[in-house]
Protein backbone atom coordinates (compact mmCIF):
# COMPACT_ATOMS: atom_id res chain seq x y z
CA UNK A 1 0.00 0.00 0.00
CA UNK A 2 2.62 2.49 1.04
CA UNK A 3 4.73 1.77 -2.03
CA UNK A 4 1.82 2.54 -4.32
CA UNK A 5 0.97 5.88 -2.79
CA UNK A 6 3.88 7.95 -4.18
CA UNK A 7 3.47 6.43 -7.63
CA UNK A 8 -0.24 7.23 -7.57
CA UNK A 9 0.42 10.73 -6.35
CA UNK A 10 2.97 11.21 -9.11
CA UNK A 11 0.54 10.01 -11.75
CA UNK A 12 -2.16 12.32 -10.42
CA UNK A 13 0.28 15.23 -10.42
CA UNK A 14 1.41 14.68 -14.00
CA UNK A 15 -2.24 14.30 -15.06
CA UNK A 16 -3.05 17.62 -13.40
CA UNK A 17 -0.07 19.22 -15.13
CA UNK A 18 -1.19 17.87 -18.49
CA UNK A 19 -4.71 19.23 -17.97
CA UNK A 20 -3.33 22.63 -17.00
CA UNK A 21 -1.10 22.78 -20.05
CA UNK A 22 -3.65 21.50 -22.56
CA UNK A 23 -7.10 22.44 -21.25
CA UNK A 24 -8.89 21.99 -24.58
CA UNK A 25 -7.47 18.49 -25.09
CA UNK A 26 -8.41 17.59 -21.52
CA UNK A 27 -12.00 18.76 -21.99
CA UNK A 28 -12.20 16.90 -25.30
CA UNK A 29 -10.83 13.74 -23.70
CA UNK A 30 -13.37 14.03 -20.87
CA UNK A 31 -16.22 14.38 -23.40
CA UNK A 32 -15.02 11.34 -25.32
CA UNK A 33 -14.75 9.28 -22.11
CA UNK A 34 -18.28 10.31 -21.07
CA UNK A 35 -19.58 9.39 -24.52
CA UNK A 36 -17.92 5.98 -24.47
CA UNK A 37 -19.35 5.32 -21.00
CA UNK A 38 -22.80 6.49 -22.13
CA UNK A 39 -22.63 4.17 -25.12
CA UNK A 40 -21.47 1.20 -23.05
CA UNK A 41 -24.01 1.76 -20.28
CA UNK A 42 -26.85 2.92 -22.54
CA UNK A 43 -29.19 0.19 -21.29
CA UNK A 44 -28.76 1.34 -17.70
CA UNK A 45 -28.64 5.12 -17.95
CA UNK A 46 -31.25 5.78 -20.64
CA UNK A 47 -34.39 6.89 -18.75
CA UNK A 48 -36.77 5.13 -21.16
CA UNK A 49 -36.79 2.32 -23.69
CA UNK A 50 -35.55 3.99 -26.94
CA UNK A 51 -38.00 1.92 -28.98
CA UNK A 52 -41.09 2.25 -26.74
CA UNK A 53 -43.84 3.80 -28.84
CA UNK A 54 -46.53 5.79 -27.09
CA UNK A 55 -49.45 7.30 -28.96
CA UNK A 56 -50.27 9.74 -26.16
CA UNK A 57 -46.73 11.10 -25.87
CA UNK A 58 -46.26 12.20 -29.47
CA UNK A 59 -44.09 15.28 -30.25
CA UNK A 60 -43.86 16.51 -26.66
CA UNK A 61 -41.44 19.41 -26.18
CA UNK A 62 -38.56 18.94 -23.71
CA UNK A 63 -39.86 18.42 -20.14
CA UNK A 64 -38.74 16.89 -16.89
CA UNK A 65 -39.88 13.40 -17.93
CA UNK A 66 -38.38 13.76 -21.43
CA UNK A 67 -35.44 16.19 -21.22
CA UNK A 68 -35.05 16.21 -25.02
CA UNK A 69 -38.76 15.82 -25.82
CA UNK A 70 -40.40 12.97 -27.69
CA UNK A 71 -40.59 12.14 -31.39
CA UNK A 72 -43.53 11.59 -33.74
CA UNK A 73 -44.03 8.07 -32.36
CA UNK A 74 -43.81 9.21 -28.74
CA UNK A 75 -40.34 7.75 -28.20
CA UNK A 76 -38.03 9.49 -25.74
CA UNK A 77 -35.42 11.46 -27.70
CA UNK A 78 -32.82 11.45 -24.89
CA UNK A 79 -32.90 7.65 -24.68
CA UNK A 80 -32.60 7.43 -28.46
CA UNK A 81 -29.67 9.84 -28.51
CA UNK A 82 -27.89 7.82 -25.79
CA UNK A 83 -28.43 4.59 -27.70
CA UNK A 84 -27.47 6.34 -30.93
CA UNK A 85 -24.05 7.02 -29.42
CA UNK A 86 -23.40 3.27 -29.63
CA UNK A 87 -23.73 3.21 -33.41
CA UNK A 88 -21.86 6.47 -33.96
CA UNK A 89 -18.90 5.43 -31.82
CA UNK A 90 -18.93 1.88 -33.19
CA UNK A 91 -18.84 3.21 -36.75
CA UNK A 92 -16.23 5.86 -35.94
CA UNK A 93 -13.85 3.50 -34.17
CA UNK A 94 -14.35 0.61 -36.60
CA UNK A 95 -13.77 2.80 -39.65
CA UNK A 96 -10.62 4.26 -38.12
CA UNK A 97 -9.39 0.73 -37.30
CA UNK A 98 -10.30 -0.89 -40.63
CA UNK A 99 -8.95 1.87 -42.86
CA UNK A 100 -5.80 2.25 -40.76
CA UNK A 101 -4.96 -1.47 -40.70
CA UNK A 102 -5.79 -2.12 -44.37
CA UNK A 103 -4.27 1.18 -45.50
CA UNK A 104 -1.07 0.61 -43.52
CA UNK A 105 -0.63 -2.88 -44.94
CA UNK A 106 -1.08 -1.63 -48.51
CA UNK A 107 1.04 1.45 -47.83
CA UNK A 108 3.94 -0.58 -46.49
CA UNK A 109 3.83 -2.90 -49.51
CA UNK A 110 3.65 0.05 -51.89
CA UNK A 111 6.51 1.78 -50.14
CA UNK A 112 8.61 -1.36 -50.28
CA UNK A 113 7.97 -2.78 -53.72
CA UNK A 114 8.14 -0.66 -56.85
CA UNK A 115 5.88 -3.00 -58.82
CA UNK A 116 3.17 -3.07 -56.19
CA UNK A 117 3.57 0.71 -55.92
CA UNK A 118 2.96 1.25 -59.62
CA UNK A 119 -0.30 -0.71 -59.71
CA UNK A 120 -1.64 0.08 -56.25
CA UNK A 121 -1.10 3.83 -56.41
CA UNK A 122 -3.05 4.10 -59.68
CA UNK A 123 -6.02 2.37 -58.06
CA UNK A 124 -5.64 4.67 -55.04
CA UNK A 125 -5.57 7.71 -57.35
CA UNK A 126 -8.80 6.47 -58.88
CA UNK A 127 -10.42 5.98 -55.48
CA UNK A 128 -9.21 9.41 -54.35
CA UNK A 129 -10.73 10.98 -57.46
CA UNK A 130 -14.23 10.03 -56.32
CA UNK A 131 -15.48 12.11 -53.38
CA UNK A 132 -15.64 9.79 -50.36
CA UNK A 133 -19.31 10.29 -49.55
CA UNK A 134 -20.21 9.52 -53.16
CA UNK A 135 -18.21 6.29 -53.12
CA UNK A 136 -19.93 5.32 -49.87
CA UNK A 137 -23.34 6.11 -51.37
CA UNK A 138 -22.56 4.01 -54.46
CA UNK A 139 -21.34 1.17 -52.27
CA UNK A 140 -24.45 1.21 -50.08
CA UNK A 141 -26.65 1.42 -53.16
CA UNK A 142 -25.10 -1.84 -54.31
CA UNK A 143 -24.90 -3.77 -51.05
CA UNK A 144 -27.80 -2.40 -49.05
CA UNK A 145 -27.68 -0.86 -45.60
CA UNK A 146 -26.47 -2.67 -42.51
CA UNK A 147 -24.05 -1.56 -39.81
CA UNK A 148 -21.29 -3.65 -41.42
CA UNK A 149 -21.84 -2.29 -44.92
CA UNK A 150 -21.94 1.27 -43.57
CA UNK A 151 -18.56 0.67 -41.89
CA UNK A 152 -17.06 -0.78 -45.07
CA UNK A 153 -18.61 1.94 -47.23
CA UNK A 154 -17.02 4.69 -45.14
CA UNK A 155 -13.69 2.85 -44.73
CA UNK A 156 -13.01 2.22 -48.42
CA UNK A 157 -12.72 5.89 -49.44
CA UNK A 158 -10.48 6.51 -46.41
CA UNK A 159 -8.00 3.76 -47.27
CA UNK A 160 -6.13 5.74 -49.98
CA UNK A 161 -5.46 8.53 -47.50
CA UNK A 162 -3.81 6.10 -45.08
CA UNK A 163 -1.94 4.37 -47.91
CA UNK A 164 -0.48 7.68 -49.09
CA UNK A 165 0.61 8.65 -45.60
CA UNK A 166 2.16 5.29 -44.71
CA UNK A 167 3.82 4.96 -48.10
CA UNK A 168 5.45 8.36 -47.82
CA UNK A 169 6.69 7.58 -44.30
CA UNK A 170 8.07 4.21 -45.42
CA UNK A 171 9.76 5.80 -48.43
CA UNK A 172 11.50 8.36 -46.27
CA UNK A 173 12.40 5.93 -43.46
CA UNK A 174 13.75 3.08 -45.53
CA UNK A 175 16.67 5.16 -46.78
CA UNK A 176 17.74 6.10 -43.25
CA UNK A 177 20.98 4.84 -41.82
CA UNK A 178 19.50 2.72 -39.03
CA UNK A 179 17.36 0.79 -41.50
CA UNK A 180 20.38 0.38 -43.74
CA UNK A 181 22.38 -1.04 -40.85
CA UNK A 182 19.55 -3.38 -39.88
CA UNK A 183 19.51 -4.61 -43.45
CA UNK A 184 23.26 -5.09 -43.55
CA UNK A 185 22.99 -7.13 -40.35
CA UNK A 186 20.80 -9.53 -42.28
CA UNK A 187 17.31 -8.47 -41.20
CA UNK A 188 14.64 -9.53 -43.69
CA UNK A 189 12.08 -7.08 -45.10
CA UNK A 190 9.31 -8.27 -42.75
CA UNK A 191 11.50 -7.77 -39.70
CA UNK A 192 12.60 -4.35 -40.93
CA UNK A 193 9.00 -3.28 -41.53
CA UNK A 194 7.63 -4.58 -38.24
CA UNK A 195 10.53 -3.74 -35.95
CA UNK A 196 12.14 -0.68 -37.49
CA UNK A 197 9.74 1.16 -39.78
CA UNK A 198 6.20 0.77 -38.42
CA UNK A 199 7.04 1.83 -34.84
CA UNK A 200 8.50 5.06 -36.20
CA UNK A 201 5.48 5.63 -38.42
CA UNK A 202 3.05 5.05 -35.54
CA UNK A 203 2.65 8.69 -34.50
CA UNK A 204 1.37 10.14 -37.79
CA UNK A 205 -0.76 7.03 -38.38
CA UNK A 206 -2.38 7.40 -34.95
CA UNK A 207 -3.10 11.09 -35.52
CA UNK A 208 -4.58 10.32 -38.93
CA UNK A 209 -6.75 7.59 -37.35
CA UNK A 210 -8.27 10.03 -34.88
CA UNK A 211 -9.27 12.41 -37.68
CA UNK A 212 -10.67 9.49 -39.69
CA UNK A 213 -12.76 8.55 -36.65
CA UNK A 214 -14.25 12.05 -36.47
CA UNK A 215 -15.03 12.20 -40.17
CA UNK A 216 -16.52 8.69 -40.06
CA UNK A 217 -18.96 9.69 -37.32
CA UNK A 218 -20.00 12.63 -39.47
CA UNK A 219 -20.25 10.44 -42.58
CA UNK A 220 -22.46 7.89 -40.79
CA UNK A 221 -24.86 10.66 -39.83
CA UNK A 222 -24.82 12.11 -43.34
CA UNK A 223 -25.60 8.70 -44.86
CA UNK A 224 -28.36 8.26 -42.29
CA UNK A 225 -29.73 11.65 -43.27
CA UNK A 226 -29.79 10.58 -46.94
CA UNK A 227 -31.72 7.47 -45.92
CA UNK A 228 -28.79 5.16 -46.71
CA UNK A 229 -27.37 4.68 -43.22
CA UNK A 230 -27.99 2.03 -40.62
CA UNK A 231 -31.46 0.45 -40.72
CA UNK A 232 -34.14 2.43 -38.89
CA UNK A 233 -34.70 -0.30 -36.25
CA UNK A 234 -31.37 0.69 -34.70
CA UNK A 235 -31.37 4.28 -33.46
CA UNK A 236 -28.35 6.19 -34.74
CA UNK A 237 -27.82 9.94 -34.72
CA UNK A 238 -28.07 9.92 -38.49
CA UNK A 239 -31.46 8.30 -38.73
CA UNK A 240 -32.88 10.12 -35.69
CA UNK A 241 -32.05 13.36 -37.52
CA UNK A 242 -33.41 11.99 -40.81
CA UNK A 243 -36.71 11.06 -39.13
CA UNK A 244 -36.91 14.41 -37.35
CA UNK A 245 -36.38 16.36 -40.54
CA UNK A 246 -40.06 16.48 -41.52
CA UNK A 247 -40.92 18.01 -38.13
CA UNK A 248 -38.33 20.75 -38.29
CA UNK A 249 -40.97 23.51 -38.12
CA UNK A 250 -43.19 22.01 -35.42
CA UNK A 251 -40.75 20.00 -33.25
CA UNK A 252 -37.21 21.32 -33.73
CA UNK A 253 -35.93 19.46 -30.62
CA UNK A 254 -36.19 16.23 -32.63
CA UNK A 255 -33.39 17.49 -34.77
CA UNK A 256 -31.54 19.84 -32.51
CA UNK A 257 -30.45 17.43 -29.76
CA UNK A 258 -29.07 14.59 -31.90
CA UNK A 259 -27.36 17.14 -34.15
CA UNK A 260 -25.87 18.82 -31.08
CA UNK A 261 -24.63 15.46 -29.76
CA UNK A 262 -23.11 14.77 -33.15
CA UNK A 263 -21.42 18.16 -33.44
CA UNK A 264 -20.01 18.02 -29.92
CA UNK A 265 -18.70 14.48 -30.48
CA UNK A 266 -17.02 15.31 -33.77
CA UNK A 267 -15.61 18.50 -32.27
CA UNK A 268 -14.21 16.59 -29.28
CA UNK A 269 -12.59 13.90 -31.41
CA UNK A 270 -11.11 16.56 -33.73
CA UNK A 271 -9.69 18.53 -30.81
CA UNK A 272 -8.29 15.33 -29.34
CA UNK A 273 -6.65 14.60 -32.70
CA UNK A 274 -5.16 18.11 -32.75
CA UNK A 275 -3.82 17.58 -29.22
CA UNK A 276 -2.41 14.19 -30.17
CA UNK A 277 -0.66 15.73 -33.15
CA UNK A 278 0.77 18.55 -31.06
CA UNK A 279 1.99 16.07 -28.46
CA UNK A 280 3.49 13.58 -30.91
CA UNK A 281 4.88 15.87 -33.57
CA UNK A 282 7.41 18.36 -32.25
CA UNK A 283 7.09 20.41 -35.43
CA UNK A 284 3.56 21.44 -34.47
CA UNK A 285 4.32 22.19 -30.87
CA UNK A 286 3.27 25.72 -29.88
CA UNK A 287 2.66 26.70 -33.49
CA UNK A 288 -0.90 26.29 -34.65
Amino acid sequence: MTSFAPALLGAARSLAATIRRHPSSAIAAAIVVVLILAALLADYIAPHDPMAISGRQRLRPPSEANPMGTDNLGRDVLSRVIHGAQISLLVGISVAAVSTVVGSAIGVLAGYSRYVDLVVMRIMDGLMAIPGILLAIAFLAMFGSSVTSVIIAISVPDIPRVVRLVRSVVLSLRELLYVESARSMGAGPIRIILRHILPNAAAPILVQASFLCASAILAEASLGFLGLGTPSEIPSWGNIIAEGRSFIGSAPWLLFFPALALTVTVLAVNVLGDGLRDALDPRFRRRI
Partner: peptide, 18 residues
Protein backbone atom coordinates in the same frame (compact mmCIF):
# COMPACT_ATOMS: atom_id res chain seq x y z
CA UNK B 1 -13.91 27.49 -37.57
CA UNK B 2 -13.66 24.37 -35.42
CA UNK B 3 -17.46 24.32 -35.16
CA UNK B 4 -17.69 24.92 -38.91
CA UNK B 5 -15.55 21.84 -39.54
CA UNK B 6 -17.37 19.66 -37.02
CA UNK B 7 -21.01 20.60 -37.62
CA UNK B 8 -22.67 18.35 -40.19
CA UNK B 9 -23.66 20.19 -43.38
CA UNK B 10 -27.25 18.98 -43.28
CA UNK B 11 -27.66 20.39 -39.77
CA UNK B 12 -26.18 23.74 -40.79
CA UNK B 13 -28.48 23.76 -43.82
CA UNK B 14 -31.58 22.98 -41.80
CA UNK B 15 -30.75 25.62 -39.17
CA UNK B 16 -30.19 28.25 -41.89
CA UNK B 17 -33.51 27.23 -43.42
CA UNK B 18 -35.36 27.62 -40.12
Amino acid sequence: SLIGISAPAFFVGLVLMI
